[in-house]
Design a protein around this nucleic acid. Structure first.
Lengths: 343, 343
DNA sequence: CGAAACACGGTAAACGTTTACAGACATTTT
DNA sequence: AAAATGTCTGTAAACGTTTACCGTGTTTCG
């Protein structure tokens, strides 16, 4: 790990000035002979450009940060998987921040943009507070938010459409003849929780179904809690014939509990999840799920940010990615295999 | 996004020299009055230290890179999830590289250490080639490899123990009375593929079971291919009564195909996966799986690297993480729910 | 053949920090 | 009262690049 060669070392060895070395290395027009000498010296010394010095002078780090709550969450993971290759192709490295949905951590990340260790930031906050908005207004580098920010916030914004997503699912269940459609939601003080709750209510209304408090159960966004929530729900409203779950993990919990309670899926109770994660296809019965386009949102965010990094300074843009219902065995029933291993 | 304040700006405003500003900002002993003036100026200006300039001078970036084949792979994800918080707690940022298991990309990453944009690297290569070893020998920053490198390679090394892992699984299947135990493996030219193949053979031998070529099927490490492999296997060896799958995705494919073929799991065919990913618990029937301790390996690697960054220059270390068999419905049978929704 | 145009490469400043060194002043010691 | 000590702060160099500017030597043209 001895100190590596610098352009000064090369300059001495090649018998030219550091300016010439730099020019050659950057492909600026230079006499053939000089190019040859410099290249030879660089090769012999195993020279590699120092990215830090380069960044200092050029004011470009070729790094972009992505900040989300938790890599373990498949929705964020899907974003990450799209963001990474887009950035890589454009020559940017990816700095990953996991904030555990702690607001202070997110604010920290925004603040740290001032350190200028990245050229831009993609952030997917669970909820957007006033502190967020303040920091966003003063951000020292371009930011793209995956989520929803108020009109007038000076950042690009890639949105999911939970409302339509929930409607797709509820309409689907209704079309299957279900009339006692329950909602198993996450905390209503998160953005997803709130919007999905409202969308459920709206969807019922449009279908002319009554809204029944007994059919709404709140837990968190995880499997065990989801299961517990469904257990309570079954107690309170035993005639439920469909579950709209606010994410796939909750739905998985629901499947566990329904199975234990002897309810058949989908014959007795149809189940729809949300986010269309890998788990949905892996579960048994496989889970119908509403994709909110995490992957597409990640890709769109990365592309928006790249535009900004290339100097685009048009007004902030808003992109909304349409949801998609993926029908599988937990609502369709008649497709391959729901009879299980009993042929 | 106007040019932010620098220590020069602060120095002017506070009426002191930049050296004093730097000293105050770094908490070096300074007169109270000066501290006050500098702090006031810094606050008013909303000053944030420039990380790039800092790194250039101090030769420390406080960044660490993690390079693996694919974030989508749950095993790597488990590592990442452990690595991230350890680094964060130590004040390091995480730069993520996804190499798609392309050797040239991995070499690139090693080469790029010369750019000095990170202080160290954790890498989990699918296979270790001569090119890797050369680069490792000349690496310009501390490297920890998650995987297996030959004796004498000058890097720390965190290993899984596939051999014991496979043995655990095969022994388990044998103890359940299975005698026609097949292996569904990935490509034998990858390290996992090769070692799991060898370990399977060895485990059979120790149990006094014959090795039967018909019982070994090779695909890749993904679900669809895994399914296809199992279909072929069932054709060739219809009397198979247990499947040892080289990872969970293959095992999921196996479950699909077994179900379609009308074989009951685990009554007719027991199935064991490997890596113990989230999918194993989510599938139906839930999947017994051998954990190779991805999470533990990630954590160990991060800690090893931090030691190096703190100046530890002892001889290269090797840590081996023991595997663990997690028994679920796909081999245990009698536990909750394997009767499916038929109560 | 002298001037103008040009190609090339060297000198030096800049990016924003940290830090060795020395100077200025106040305080203590002899 | 002079010398010695100590505390604080300013000057300047350094980290490794990029790049504006200028000088030199060659070519081209009137």
């Amino acid at each position: 790990m001895a100190d590596g060669p610098t352009i000064t070392t090369i300059a001495e060895r090649a018998g030219v000035s550091i300016a010439s070395v730099s020019r050659v290395l950057n492909g600026l027009p230079t006499r053939q002979e000089t190019v040859r000498k410099v290249m030879a010296a660089a090769d012999e010394l195993g020279y590699v450009r120092n990215a830090v010095a380069r960044s200092l002078k050029s004011r470009r780090t070729h790094q972009v940060a992505f900040a989300m709550a938790d890599v373990g969450n498949p929705a964020y993971l899907a974003m990450l998987r799209q963001i990474q290759p887009v950035l890589k192709a454009a020559g940017y490295r990816l700095v990953l921040h996991s904030t555990d949905a702690v607001v202070a951590d997110e604010i920290d990340v925004l603040h740290s943009l001032g350190e200028r260790y990245v050229d831009g930031l993609i952030m997917s906050p669970l909820r957007v507070t006033d502190a967020h908005l303040q920091m966003l207004a003063a951000a020292r580098a371009p930011v793209v938010i995956i989520g929803t920010v108020p009109e007038g916030t000076p950042v690009d914004n890639v949105r999911a459409d939970s409302r339509t997503g929930v409607k797709l699912a509820v309409d689907h269940l209704h079309a299957l003849g279900r009339r006692r459609i329950a909602l198993v939601n996450g905390p209503p003080d998160t953005w997803p929780g709130a919007s999905r709750g409202a969308a459920y209510r709206e969807a019922l209304e449009q279908l002319g179904l009554p809204y029944d408090d007994d059919l709404v159960q709140i837990g968190d966004f995880y499997r065990a809690q989801g299961g517990r929530a469904v257990a309570e729900l079954l107690d309170r409203a035993p005639d439920v014939d469909a579950l709209m779950c606010a994410n796939d993990l909750i739905a998985l919990g629901a499947l566990d509990v329904l199975r234990a309670a002897g309810r058949r899926v989908p014959e007795d109770v149809a189940v729809v999840g949300m986010d269309d994660t890998d788990l949905a296809a892996a579960s048994w019965p496989s889970l119908s799920s509403v994709s909110l386009g995490s992957a597409e949102r990640g890709k769109a965010a990365a592309e928006l940010l790249l535009d900004r990094l290339n100097g685009d300074d048009a007004a902030p843009r808003v992109i909304t990615v349409p949801p998609r219902l993926v029908v599988r065995a937990s609502t369709a029933g008649e497709t391959y295999g729901h009879e299980g291993g009993r042929t």
